[in-house]
């Protein structure tokens, strides 16, 4: 953090400079979200009610949340484990240029979510996709119908495409934060490689790992475009149900939409809070 030696003289008029931006955030972020929150606790006449939350206990909504949580958890954990391993492999590459190139690749691909990505997966793993055909031809392995890119298993593969590079980007700085002297001290004091990883490296990496997992979870939980492009209404996720209440493709119930949105916000909020906490932990150690 910077230290500011000059003491601003007119503090309150200085705050005026921030006012336009604050007004914008209030108008298009804070107030709408707060109104959504209050709306979720009101009935059609505007009186306080828990009716909307009763509505979302319907099996379809409960299943959509359960699916969202499962997909997010699976892709977060798989992404974190694979990202940790691949991230370490990249981090330990002898050539800095190759390492830089792979980090740049991760940087680009983690932003490749959405419709084009979903379509690219249809191209390779659709029922006539090139990978599907290659499996059939060279391994005599029919992927369909056990696997389908349009189903949840396909969704996991497609999500991993942006989860994996995100984890790699998050974990490489953490590896870089492991100081060589820690390994050398541990080794000097008699520890072997396993003892070093178990007692020093992994505990130090844990906050970054947790931060990565919750961030990946939130990333997947909030995703919509990829799932919608791949599965359309075949896939029941929380975000897809919320979108339905906007577009009115099924029984259009704005109240239920509000409640679904609030529950999603709650889950996301918990993720961001854990992320912030874990990250501050990681930073404190990195001093």
């Amino acid at each position: 953090m910077m230290s500011f030696t000059r003491i601003p003289r007119k503090t309150w008029s200085n705050w005026l400079g921030v006012a336009p931006f604050l007004a914008f955030c209030l108008a298009f972020e804070i107030v709408p979200v707060l109104l959504l929150l209050s709306g979720s606790f009101s009935d059609k006449q505007g009186a306080f009610s828990l009716g909307n939350y009763a509505k979302i206990s319907a099996p379809i909504y409960v299943r959509s949340f359960w699916n969202s949580i499962q997909i997010s958890a699976i892709t977060a954990i798989l992404g974190a484990i694979l990202g940790l391993l691949i991230g370490y492999a990249i981090f330990r590459l002898p050539s800095p240029r190759v390492r830089e190139a792979l980090i740049a690749l991760s940087d680009v691909t983690t932003n490749f979510a959405g419709a084009p990505l979903a379509f690219a997966f249809i191209v390779i793993l659709g029922s006539n996709g090139v990978v599907t055909l290659a499996f059939e031809k060279y391994f005599a392995l029919k992927l369909y119908p056990a696997f389908s890119i349009y189903s949840y298993s396909g969704l996991v593969l497609a999500y991993l495409y942006f989860q994996l590079p995100l984890m790699i980007l998050l974990i490489i700085p953490a590896f870089a934060g492991l100081r060589r002297e820690w390994w050398e001290s541990a080794h000097n004091l008699g520890a072997n490689t396993f003892q070093y990883w178990r007692r020093i490296a992994l505990p130090i990496l844990t906050p970054s790992l947790i931060a990565g997992i919750v961030l990946l979870f939130a990333n997947a939980f909030g995703a919509y475009a990829t799932a919608w492009t791949l599965g359309g209404s075949n896939i029941t996720l929380a975000t897809i149900q919320i979108a339905f209440t906007i577009t009115g493709e099924v029984l259009h119930d704005p109240g239920a939409g509000d409640a679904l949105a609030v529950v999603s916000l709650l889950i996301m909020g918990v993720c961001i809070a854990i992320y912030q906490f874990a990250n501050s932990r990681a930073r404190r150690w990195a001093r």
Binding site: E184, N188, A191, N192, R199, I204, A286, R287
Partner: peptide, 28 residues
Amino acid sequence: PNKRGTGMVFQAYALFPNMNVRDNVAFG
């Protein structure tokens, strides 16, 4: 190195940040 019985002190302290003082000293 881990069988030599040399105790080394580094320039940048190199204490294990995840352990308290007791655990650092006890580590070896």
